[in-house]
Design a protein around this nucleic acid. Sequence first.
DNA 1: CAGTTGTGCGTACATATGTACGCTGAATTT
DNA 2: AAATTCAGCGTACATATGTACGCACAACTG
Lengths: 222, 222
Amino acid sequence: MQLSGSQFGQISMNPAVLKVSRKQQKEETRQRLIDAAAGALASGRSFDTLSLREVAKLAGIAPTSFYRHFHDMERLGLAMIEEQGESLLELMHRVREQASGGTSLIRASVETLFDHIGDNQGISRMILQESMARESAFREAAHGLLVTLSADLAEFLVWDAKERGVPVAYPRLASNATVAILFTTGIALFNTPAEHRQAHIEATIIQLRMLMRGAEAMAPSK
Amino acid sequence: MQLSGSQFGQISMNPAVLKVSRKQQKEETRQRLIDAAAGALASGRSFDTLSLREVAKLAGIAPTSFYRHFHDMERLGLAMIEEQGESLLELMHRVREQASGGTSLIRASVETLFDHIGDNQGISRMILQESMARESAFREAAHGLLVTLSADLAEFLVWDAKERGVPVAYPRLASNATVAILFTTGIALFNTPAEHRQAHIEATIIQLRMLMRGAEAMAPSK
DNA sequence: CAGTTGTGCGTACATATGTACGCTGAATTT
DNA sequence: AAATTCAGCGTACATATGTACGCACAACTG
């Protein structure tokens, strides 16, 4: 235990430069809790073996101080999912805008998403695992995020199909399957030795193209 | 706490009919532990919040007696995965044999698998969740089972393609994606109101057909 | 039939967990 | 300047967990 002069030892006291407003300070601690949990998840722990005390310790606060930020661990988890959801959705939109039309889009999406999952392994794994949990607010949130991603993709597929003049059958089912494949293999990637990863990425791309080809082949007329 | 005359109160003492051999008895208790854990999983608990003590209590034995059967909870989990793996593999083989050729095979497989997952919700969910966990003997086993199922399916796809004279590209990738879709939606099915389930099943079938159409479309010549 | 084996039991303990309670002192408001 | 707010702390406790230890007694072995 380090002894600090004050309970706020980690905060610079420079009076002019740092206006440590209360709101600011609270937000910072809150983020520290989230990061602590994410770190624990990233190093292999599962969310529901994570204890309030442990997260508090990792974040450098007293166990009871946890309650100043979240009512319980579930709320922490919900906050994490929400945060992740926003950045993920935004990220995928950006990729679609940037990618030049056509096939390179699948590749760009896969690579971007996998990078993101890699940078946020812990939370990504948690979302996927929780999305398969039993009914609960927690599952609801995780599952909801995946559904949103899927719906978003479906919308894009329809637009893109119209754009290219190639009809696509069952866009929602196609996007749904896409998300399933993406996340499943995305997570698996991190139990894979680095030298095989590129191969896995290529494999995923082929799988998605396969799916798209099928969706186009099943389209009604032509 | 019920008081039983002996510590083995639950065992009938009928001397002639029941030869309660030690091995038999032990096997029975072991199974009772597995069933207890499976039951807890099925009613929504996640495997790693399951405590040794709790499982022991559910199985009706003293906590310390647990050790007579498994060295720790992880071993219990491994045993469960192994058991499930065997019956699952056998089941899928049987479906393929029975199903008359052609498209009805996909339907038969999906329906059979979903029934099986339904009857073994707890373990199925556990396998899927653990397959996404961090490196560990446990993950290895769960992931291994999915890989086996996938490889098995790939083998069949190749055979079936030859049989029907329709070439299929990347059978291993196709089967891999199939397993991803199947389990993902299979699990999701049980957070779905009963009246929507059939629709989900039909959706899954379409997704798999979509994938197969794509795989065929991507085949080299024809 | 005597001796051994091994599944089951209860007790005991060190450790971990969630959370109630009340205090402190800086930031904010009045 | 005085009063209020509130993020943080430590203490305390009831409960849960894994597991060491040794006893009991049915089943098995000889």
